[in-house]
Amino acid sequence: MRAILELENVSLSYHTLEGEILALQDINLQVMPEEFISIVGPSGCGKSTLLSLIAGLLKPSKGTIRLDGVPITGTTQQVGYMLQQDYLFEWRTILDNALLGLEVLRKRTPENIEKVKQMLVDYGLGGFEKYYPQQLSGGMRQRVALIRTLAMEPKVFLLDEPFSALDYQNRLAVGAEVVKILREQKKTVIMVTHDIPEAISMANRVLVFTKRPGRIKSEHIVTLNANGCNPLACRESPEFSRYYTKIWKELNSDE
């Protein structure tokens, strides 16, 4: 099978008055279709920067990123990016929020409106179309944000600590739900997190990043999800703690 996303010797430097900061160094990565990759690393290791590069918001200083073999030059509908919070607009109804991405693409057509309405119903938000975000719970808002991205039909999903704004209970439940939806939709996912259990319970592969400049320190194939068990059940499995210990040690060792 061919990789859907390929990163080849990708480096990125930031320029400031004080000088040049190397944020990411020589990242090489091949992502297979429908793979779920988690990236963990110390804060400031450039994890989020990597997502911005893949999303086309930043250009790499060196190296190339290819999506389906084509170099990424800017934002594309093929890549969906979910930020740390839902960022639903309080002046838009739930339906209008869910349609925002399509609207920007000038695809707010009657068919698409119907499609998004159906998605709201499918994901348990039927009847909330005309509500405003302030009237919904954190978990429901997260689902609206997911629909907003799903509606644009990207192949690759980038998740930047997408559940960090939720409290622990909700985090587990919403996380499990989102993963289930993304698997059903056969999406390729790259998720950045600092929560090791979250990373293990959702991913097929966990990448550990070094401190700045961020490099891939190690890679762990996680087989917990192979039989499609959900993230909550994964946490119960005996191997879970084995992965956890290994990754935790790596994160806390200096080289």
Binding site: T76, F89, W91, V104
Partner: peptide, 29 residues
């Protein structure tokens, strides 16, 4: 205005005019 709201629009590939009309102005009411 929260720069992440603007970033969200950028991830959709929004132009500057779209950012103005869909975030900046409504958020500034």
């Amino acid at each position: 205005i929260d720069p992440n709201k603007i970033k969200l629009l950028r991830t959709f590939g929004a132009s500057k005019t779209q950012t103005l009309l869909k975030v900046i102005i409504p958020a500034s009411v």
